[in-house]
């Protein structure tokens, strides 16, 4: 099985200690509890709360992408960047499109 092990691990560079993951884990906990606090603990107006948790969610997504999902690491062509741009396009389309389409609610109500 010795040859098996080299082929398996040879292509992954091993870090001594997973600092990236620990930092990412702590930061994502901080951001999660932060947004929970904005909703439950703070007494800001709801517009401000929504803006705050959206901003925290964007940071959360960044942490996931860079610290856990290896956005910058690649062996060979960097397909994931194209896919991330496509994901941003879809997210924008779905959110902005739904708001636009559902705007008729205000005329009905």
């Amino acid at each position: 099985m010795a040859s098996n092990d080299t082929t398996k691990h040879g292509q992954h560079h091993q870090e001594a200690f997973p600092w990236k993951h620990i930092i990412g884990f702590l930061l994502s906990l901080v951001l999660t509890f932060g947004s929970l606090w904005f909703v439950l603990g703070s007494h800001l107006p709801s517009q401000a709360v929504i803006s705050a948790i959206v901003i925290l969610a964007v940071f959360q997504a960044m942490i996931q992408l860079f610290l856990f999902m290896h956005l910058t690491e690649t062996f060979g062509p960097n397909y994931q960047q194209f896919l991330i741009f496509f994901a941003f396009f879809i997210a924008f389309t779905v959110v902005a499109g739904s708001i636009w389409i559902m705007a008729f609610k205000s005329y009905v109500a």
Binding site: T93, V94, G97, W100, I101, A103, F104
Partner: peptide, 21 residues
């Protein structure tokens, strides 16, 4: 593949989302 994500309202034109939409 890109266009398929920007056409979904044609399944419910009669919902009344307005002329622009």
């Amino acid at each position: 593949s890109i266009l398929s994500f920007v056409v979904w309202v044609h399944h419910f034109f009669t919902m009344g989302a307005g002329v622009g939409v």
